[in-house]
Design a protein around this nucleic acid. Structure first.
Lengths: 214, 214
DNA sequence: TAACCTACCAAACACTTGTTAGGGAAGCTT
DNA sequence: AAGCTTCCCTAACAAGTGTTTGGTAGGTTA
């Protein structure tokens, strides 16, 4: 999935690895705090000095662990997408029916929001602009694969007669996709509802509607 | 609705009005192009030079028409919210039933997305962060009023037995609100569907669900 | 013709940005 | 004790930021 352009670039100067060998644990810690700041303020509005502040160090010190501000963002998003697709692929390989597949995908999505709240928030805000950049081409790849999985499942459901045939299926896809992922804008881990409970209610609304049956 | 802090600020230096008297039509033109750039790149990632480029002039020339980059954003959002509430208030004053009110609000929302695509996109991306700033306090006010209108209508619908009583009503509110407004991320005016047609399909999904009734 | 107004340009300003270079303190290894 | 590694700091850099100041071409008014 992840096509790493890495050092293949047209840029003559090879991209530097950090001078020495920082510990992966510390990297993770710093990436987590960076992700929080990115999510709260937006990537562009976040200065490396703010990240350093949140981490209790000075701006320049971050460059012992990372090549650049952009590579922090890169690693945050790539890690999230890797884990997301691990979950999705498991669901898609399970050979469930269309309705059960949708239910499992939605539930899995809310679990990802629960586990990677900051990364999902960043993704939501920045993905569209980033996807055009070569370095973040894997975002576009992911979106394509994502759309294929959901649209395919919906089409299968319409063919099987479990989903309504009178709706624009592309509209339905965007509808479900968006309703799930925008939840990250208000969801806070450890809140009233568990991810599974939220998924259950969302699915109930999406599948059966909010109106009383007459 | 709009509490204009204006020049009352604690800041000692009085905020300057533009030196002379630029034409309101030209202001509108420039605000429209500025809104497009803000929507496409994000407010923080947008430099005044990019706006000036898009408008075919130099950066400094913008300051003949506007006090600052921030005041452009302010005027864009304030104008949008004013028109939004004109529409909403008309709907809310019509004395419709709960279901008809929701239908009218959703339809009106898609019309606003159609008319103010750029402003809505900016609002979606930046409102949360901006609302904390005193200058943009009216954003928070609007959100409060917004929530009251929708939640009230939903509660009335549950009481009247037209909406399901087994759902978390706050979750339902966020669900409907988000499904409507995120549409701005993919909606393009002049596309396949009119705002009314999109509203019709969205309402069909939200109210009746995407699953086939058994 | 002279005065004036509108809408822009040219050039600079102070500041913030991401990033780099050199160094040093602590801990571990030999 | 000497050397090495890890992790951070100090101090600066060039580029880019929003904004200001003074000027000026062209039209309108007197």
């Amino acid at each position: 999935m992840r096509e790493r352009p890495g050092d293949n670039g047209t840029v003559p100067t090879a991209k530097k690895k950090p001078n020495v060998s920082p510990s992966p644990e510390r990297r993770r810690e710093l990436l987590d705090t960076a992700a929080e700041v990115f999510a709260a303020q937006g990537y562009n509005a976040t200065t490396v000095r703010k990240i350093a502040d949140a981490a209790g160090m000075l701006a320049g010190s971050l460059y012992y662990h990372f090549d650049s501000k952009e590579s922090m963002l890169d690693e945050i998003l790539a890690t999230f997408l890797d884990e997301l697709w691990t979950g999705y692929d498991t669901v898609l390989a399970a050979g469930l029916g269309p309705r059960e597949t949708i239910e499992a995908l939605v539930t899995e999505s809310f679990r990802e929001i629960d586990r990677h709240r900051a990364a999902v928030a960043i993704y939501q805000k920045e993905a569209r602009t980033l996807a055009t950049q070569p370095r973040f081409g894997y975002l576009a790849d992911s979106q394509t694969k994502f759309e294929a999985a959901w649209l395919g499942t919906l089409e299968r459901g319409v063919a099987d007669g479990v989903f309504r045939a009178d709706l624009d299926i592309r509209l339905t896809y965007r509808f479900i996709r968006d309703t799930v992922w925008v939840a990250v804008s208000w969801y806070r881990p450890g809140g009233q509802h568990s991810p599974e409970e939220i998924a259950r209610q969302y699915l109930s609304m999406v599948l059966d509607g909010v109106a009383v049956r007459t």
